[in-house]
Protein backbone atom coordinates (compact mmCIF):
# COMPACT_ATOMS: atom_id res chain seq x y z
CA UNK A 1 0.00 0.00 0.00
CA UNK A 2 1.67 3.17 -1.14
CA UNK A 3 0.52 6.40 -2.72
CA UNK A 4 3.37 7.23 -5.10
CA UNK A 5 1.23 7.11 -8.30
CA UNK A 6 -1.25 9.58 -6.80
CA UNK A 7 1.62 11.90 -5.93
CA UNK A 8 2.92 11.59 -9.50
CA UNK A 9 -0.51 12.70 -10.74
CA UNK A 10 -0.49 15.66 -8.34
CA UNK A 11 3.05 16.58 -9.44
CA UNK A 12 2.14 16.46 -13.13
CA UNK A 13 -0.93 18.60 -12.47
CA UNK A 14 0.98 21.24 -10.51
CA UNK A 15 3.71 21.29 -13.18
CA UNK A 16 1.09 21.93 -15.84
CA UNK A 17 -0.46 24.71 -13.76
CA UNK A 18 2.95 26.36 -13.32
CA UNK A 19 3.48 26.22 -17.08
CA UNK A 20 0.04 27.70 -17.73
CA UNK A 21 0.60 30.58 -15.33
CA UNK A 22 4.08 31.53 -16.56
CA UNK A 23 3.48 30.84 -20.25
CA UNK A 24 4.66 33.48 -22.74
CA UNK A 25 3.18 31.74 -25.76
CA UNK A 26 -0.41 30.62 -26.26
CA UNK A 27 0.58 27.43 -28.10
CA UNK A 28 2.81 26.58 -25.14
CA UNK A 29 -0.15 27.29 -22.85
CA UNK A 30 -2.33 24.83 -24.78
CA UNK A 31 0.44 22.26 -24.35
CA UNK A 32 0.52 22.97 -20.61
CA UNK A 33 -3.24 22.42 -20.43
CA UNK A 34 -2.67 19.03 -22.06
CA UNK A 35 -0.07 18.29 -19.35
CA UNK A 36 -2.63 19.19 -16.65
CA UNK A 37 -5.10 16.88 -18.30
CA UNK A 38 -2.66 14.00 -18.49
CA UNK A 39 -2.43 14.20 -14.70
CA UNK A 40 -6.06 13.10 -14.63
CA UNK A 41 -5.22 10.05 -16.76
CA UNK A 42 -2.51 9.04 -14.29
CA UNK A 43 -4.85 9.58 -11.34
CA UNK A 44 -7.75 7.64 -12.88
CA UNK A 45 -5.62 4.68 -13.91
CA UNK A 46 -3.89 4.65 -10.51
CA UNK A 47 -7.26 4.59 -8.72
CA UNK A 48 -8.36 1.61 -10.80
CA UNK A 49 -5.19 -0.47 -10.41
CA UNK A 50 -5.29 -3.76 -8.55
CA UNK A 51 -2.14 -5.66 -7.56
CA UNK A 52 -1.25 -8.47 -9.96
CA UNK A 53 -4.24 -7.77 -12.20
CA UNK A 54 -4.44 -7.75 -15.98
CA UNK A 55 -6.50 -5.80 -18.54
CA UNK A 56 -10.29 -6.24 -18.27
CA UNK A 57 -10.55 -7.91 -21.67
CA UNK A 58 -11.78 -11.49 -21.75
CA UNK A 59 -11.03 -12.44 -25.34
CA UNK A 60 -7.95 -14.41 -24.31
CA UNK A 61 -8.41 -15.10 -20.58
CA UNK A 62 -11.21 -17.08 -19.00
CA UNK A 63 -13.53 -14.90 -16.88
CA UNK A 64 -12.66 -15.25 -13.21
CA UNK A 65 -9.27 -16.89 -13.80
CA UNK A 66 -7.32 -13.74 -13.01
CA UNK A 67 -8.11 -10.49 -11.25
CA UNK A 68 -8.65 -7.56 -13.61
CA UNK A 69 -8.15 -3.84 -13.09
CA UNK A 70 -11.16 -1.53 -12.76
CA UNK A 71 -12.71 -1.08 -16.25
CA UNK A 72 -14.86 1.89 -15.20
CA UNK A 73 -11.92 4.24 -14.69
CA UNK A 74 -10.34 3.01 -17.92
CA UNK A 75 -13.50 3.96 -19.80
CA UNK A 76 -13.44 7.33 -18.01
CA UNK A 77 -9.83 7.81 -19.11
CA UNK A 78 -10.85 7.12 -22.71
CA UNK A 79 -13.56 9.77 -22.43
CA UNK A 80 -11.01 12.11 -20.88
CA UNK A 81 -8.55 11.62 -23.76
CA UNK A 82 -11.22 12.27 -26.39
CA UNK A 83 -12.47 15.41 -24.67
CA UNK A 84 -8.87 16.55 -24.15
CA UNK A 85 -8.06 16.12 -27.84
CA UNK A 86 -11.14 18.07 -28.95
CA UNK A 87 -10.47 20.87 -26.48
CA UNK A 88 -6.87 21.08 -27.68
CA UNK A 89 -8.04 21.29 -31.31
CA UNK A 90 -10.54 24.03 -30.50
CA UNK A 91 -8.01 26.04 -28.48
CA UNK A 92 -5.40 25.75 -31.23
CA UNK A 93 -7.97 27.05 -33.72
CA UNK A 94 -8.58 30.01 -31.41
CA UNK A 95 -4.83 30.64 -31.11
CA UNK A 96 -4.56 30.60 -34.89
CA UNK A 97 -7.24 33.29 -35.15
CA UNK A 98 -5.58 35.36 -32.39
CA UNK A 99 -2.24 35.14 -34.18
CA UNK A 100 -3.88 36.32 -37.40
CA UNK A 101 -5.89 39.18 -35.91
CA UNK A 102 -3.39 40.48 -33.36
CA UNK A 103 -0.10 39.37 -34.84
CA UNK A 104 1.12 37.92 -31.55
CA UNK A 105 0.68 34.80 -29.44
CA UNK A 106 2.10 36.29 -26.24
CA UNK A 107 -0.79 36.50 -23.74
CA UNK A 108 0.80 39.53 -22.04
CA UNK A 109 0.59 41.56 -25.25
CA UNK A 110 -3.09 40.82 -25.74
CA UNK A 111 -4.35 43.60 -23.53
CA UNK A 112 -6.88 45.58 -25.49
CA UNK A 113 -9.98 44.24 -27.15
CA UNK A 114 -10.14 44.67 -30.88
CA UNK A 115 -13.11 44.17 -33.15
Amino acid sequence: MHILPYLVAAYVFVTGCYGLATSRNLIHAVGCLAVCQSATYVLLLAVGYRDGATAPVFSDIAPGSRPVVDPVVQALTLTDIVVGATVTALLLALVLQIAKRHGTVDPDELRELRG
Binding site: M1, H2, I3, L4, P5, Y6, A46, G48, Y49, R50, D51, P56, P67, V68, V69, D70, P71, V72, V73
Partner: peptide, 10 residues
Protein backbone atom coordinates in the same frame (compact mmCIF):
# COMPACT_ATOMS: atom_id res chain seq x y z
CA UNK B 1 -4.13 2.58 -1.19
CA UNK B 2 -2.72 1.98 -4.68
CA UNK B 3 -3.38 -1.51 -6.02
CA UNK B 4 -6.01 -2.35 -3.40
CA UNK B 5 -8.40 -5.29 -3.71
CA UNK B 6 -11.64 -3.37 -3.32
CA UNK B 7 -13.13 -2.13 -6.60
CA UNK B 8 -16.91 -2.39 -6.18
CA UNK B 9 -17.78 -0.55 -9.41
CA UNK B 10 -15.19 -2.44 -11.42
Amino acid sequence: GFGGRRHPYG
